[in-house]
Design a protein around this nucleic acid. Sequence first.
DNA 1: TAAAAGTCTTAAACTAGTTCATTTTTTTTC
DNA 2: GAAAAAAAATGAACTAGTTTAAGACTTTTA
Lengths: 197, 197
Amino acid sequence: MTNKASHTLILNNIARFIDLTQLEKQKYLSLLTEVKVKKKDFLMQAGEITTYEYFIAKGCLKVYTLDQNGVPHISMFAIEDYWTGDISSFMTKTPSNYYIKATEHSELLGISRANYDILFQEIPKFERFYRMLYQRSLISYIKRSNHGISLTAEERYIKFKEKYPKIVNRVTQKDLAAYIGITPEFMSKIISKVNRS
Amino acid sequence: MTNKASHTLILNNIARFIDLTQLEKQKYLSLLTEVKVKKKDFLMQAGEITTYEYFIAKGCLKVYTLDQNGVPHISMFAIEDYWTGDISSFMTKTPSNYYIKATEHSELLGISRANYDILFQEIPKFERFYRMLYQRSLISYIKRSNHGISLTAEERYIKFKEKYPKIVNRVTQKDLAAYIGITPEFMSKIISKVNRS
DNA sequence: TAAAAGTCTTAAACTAGTTCATTTTTTTTC
DNA sequence: GAAAAAAAATGAACTAGTTTAAGACTTTTA
């Protein structure tokens, strides 16, 4: 993937919510850093203070925590045209509880915390962009937190397939289980049951 | 509660993130509507398009959905100094799935969708305010959705008590169960177990 | 391309949480 | 302040999801 392709992708993503002049586009792109992550490599690990937020131009990553027993719980899968990172660590400058690992070779555009602050000073329109981006994420996390406490595992799996048809076949069943919040064994049973019926 | 008290409260809430001039404060307050809700009355019901977002000056409300079986699932309890509503319905102008009911006599300040749009035109600083407000909410919902799939009911109850000590004694056990995501019977068992130990 | 490592499946025994039914306690209402 | 309604407690029978273990299949690596 050339520079150009990832730049087009991120500018289109931003154009959903705000219009930028040519100059603003150039300024914005100049604040970004290109990052490549090989499959199975970490973009970040728990304990670190996250100094970047990322846009995914290509690839797939999983964002997860490990509980007291070392069991992983996946917060999100991030694919092309998604944003990821640990917004809590990024904003509060405190150590993260999250790991972000590439499940495929991935190409990202990152913005540092310093540049994120500069961005709002130089192009205040970005307050609106992030206001709308966070608003949308909020809506989907509110829904997800409700599903977590009100639906059965089978219902959560069916919802996931409906909402993320592109992701469901791109990740392992084990990772899907860690996202749905069940054991891989039970995930296996659910999938064979749902496919049977 | 006088006008003044609720105005002071909401202006302080906003001052956490942005500074307003006297004129801006007046302009902002002029865009708000006072609403009172009696205990057990609805602020809104599923099926309606939500045209207001609310700041709670006094009281306590529960935001919940009903599932296929008519079982309630509480998304949040909103008390003084919190914001509430259905951000999804409010933004997309589509019918809500949520009910909001006062569990105590409550006094709110509401902003209509029309005034919300005017607000950003007249005082663009509010983009920043909402960017930061949504960012914070997002952080706490990301955490909550993780807890829903990774913690036991007892652990979720203990976390809730730690995070919301002011709310835990203000709502019924039944509503707490609907928030934690378990039956009232099992909530009762957990509470007697936790208090015993 | 063989070996190693990881993933998926299946099944039996187990546990966290539900359901249903009944009684006691607290809150609401007239 | 008595009666009615709602909330909380308790217990027995049940079910969704876990644990442990073992074998089959697939992917990665040298």
